[in-house]
C-alpha cells in the first residue's frame, strides 16, 4: 500500500469514528496483536490446535461473532468475557484488519 492511499484510508477511519485525530497509525495492528497468543500471529492460528483462525475471514463474519459474544447470544467459554473489552468501533477495526490478512 502506498503512503497516499494509507493516509487517505486513515483519514476515512477518523471521519467514520469521529475519534480523536491523535489515534496511532498502527492502533488497529497493535490491538489485533493482543489476540495472537490464542489466534496466531496476524490471526494465523496453528491448524488443528483448536483456536479459530481469523486471518482472511470475512469482515462481516468476524464482526458479527464479536457482537454476539459481547451480547452473550453466542455460546462461548471465554470470548463473551473478552469481547466486552471492545467498543463497536474497535470491533469494526479488528474485523477489517483480520479480514485483510492473508490466510
Amino acid at each position: 500500500m502506498n503512503r497516499t492511499i494509507r493516509t487517505a484510508s486513515l483519514a476515512a477511519l477518523v471521519l467514520v469514528s469521529g475519534a480523536a485525530a491523535a489515534q496511532d497509525p498502527n492502533f488497529t495492528r497493535n490491538l489485533a496483536a493482543t489476540c495472537a497468543p490464542c489466534h496466531g500471529t496476524n490471526g494465523k492460528a496453528i491448524p488443528g490446535a483448536g483456536q479459530v483462525p481469523l486471518a482472511g475471514e470475512a469482515q462481516e463474519t468476524i464482526a458479527s461473532r464479536l457482537h454476539e459474544f459481547r451480547a452473550g447470544t453466542r455460546p462461548a467459554t471465554i470470548m463473551h468475557q473478552i469481547a466486552k473489552g471492545y467498543t463497536d468501533e474497535q470491533i469494526k477495526q479488528l474485523a477489517a484488519w483480520f479480514a485483510a490478512q492473508k490466510k
Binding site: A36, P37, C38, H39, I46, Q51
Partner: peptide, 19 residues
C-alpha cells in the same frame, strides 16, 4: 471446570509459543 478448555489450553500453548 471442563474438558473443552483443556483442549484450548494446549492449543493456546502451541499458538503463543509460535507467536
Amino acid at each position: 471446570r471442563n474438558e473443552i478448555e483443556a483442549a484450548y489450553a494446549i492449543g493456546w500453548a502451541k499458538n503463543i509459543w509460535a507467536d
